[in-house]
C-alpha cells in the first residue's frame, strides 16, 4: 500500500494501518536511537516513544517533505532529549561518551566483526555526531535533510561531517589493520 494512503487511513481512524508504517521504519528509528544512546534497552524504550509520538502527531505531517525525514526528526530529538536527561542524572555527556568507548561484546551484540568495529569507532564520536554520520552515510540524507532533522546550521553540519569523517578514517585505519582499509578506499 502507498505510504500516503496508509497515513490517510490512520488519520481516518484506522489504527490497524499503523503497523504498516512501523514495519517500514522500525529498524531506521531503532538504529538512530541506538547510535545516540549506545544501549540496547534505552534504544528500545526510545523507539517505542518515537512511534507513539509519531501516532499522536501524524495529523501535523502535511506531506510537504518526506515522511522518513519527519519521523527521523522525531527520533533524533527524542533520543537526544533522553540522553540529556540521563546526563543530568549521571554526569556529563562526555562521560557518557567515554563510557561507550570500550564497549563489551554483550553491549554491542555485533552482527559481524566489521559491524563491531564500526560501532566501536562511532563511540569515539559524540552521540550527536554519530547520529549525523549515520544519517549521511547509512540513510543517505542530504546536508539539507540533516539540517531539517537536527536543527543545526548547514555550515555546522558540513564541519561536523568533515571532522567526524577524518576521525573515523583514523580509528578505522587502526582497527582494520591499515591494509584492509586501504583496499576499501581503493575499491
Amino acid at each position: 500500500m502507498d505510504e500516503s494512503n496508509t497515513i490517510a487511513l490512520i488519520l481516518a481512524g484506522d489504527r490497524s494501518a499503523f503497523p504498516l508504517l512501523m514495519e517500514r521504519y522500525v529498524h531506521m528509528v531503532h538504529t538512530v536511537a541506538y547510535r545516540v544512546l549506545r544501549n540496547e534497552m534505552d534504544a528500545e524504550e526510545v523507539t517505542q516513544d518515537v512511534f507513539v509520538k509519531a501516532y499522536q502527531r501524524l495529523g501535523e505531517f502535511k506531506g510537504q517533505g518526506k515522511f522518513s525525514t519527519w519521523l527521523y526528526s522525531i527520533a533524533y530529538r527524542t533520543a537526544i532529549t533522553s540522553i540529556r536527561s540521563r546526563k543530568k542524572a549521571t554526569g556529563s555527556l562526555d562521560e557518557l561518551s567515554a563510557v561507550g568507548r570500550e564497549p563489551s561484546a554483550a553491549m554491542i551484540d555485533p552482527i559481524d566483526e566489521r559491524s563491531a568495529i564500526l560501532e566501536k569507532a562511532l563511540r569515539t564520536l559524540t552521540p550527536e555526531d554519530a547520529a549525523v554520520m549515520t544519517m549521511f552515510y547509512l540513510e543517505e540524507f542530504s546536508v539539507e535533510e540533516i539540517v531539517t532533522v537536527t536543527g543545526i546550521g548547514a555550515s555546522n553540519v558540513k564541519v561536523k561531517l568533515h571532522r567526524c569523517r577524518k576521525r573515523l578514517h583514523e580509528v578505522l585505519q587502526q582497527q582494520l589493520k591499515g591494509e584492509t582499509w586501504t583496499l576499501m578506499m581503493s575499491a
Partner: peptide
C-alpha cells in the same frame, strides 16, 4: 569508503 562500510553493515 565510509558509505560502503555503513551500507554493508546496514541498520540495526
Amino acid at each position: 569508503p565510509l558509505i560502503g562500510l555503513f551500507q554493508d553493515i546496514g541498520r540495526r
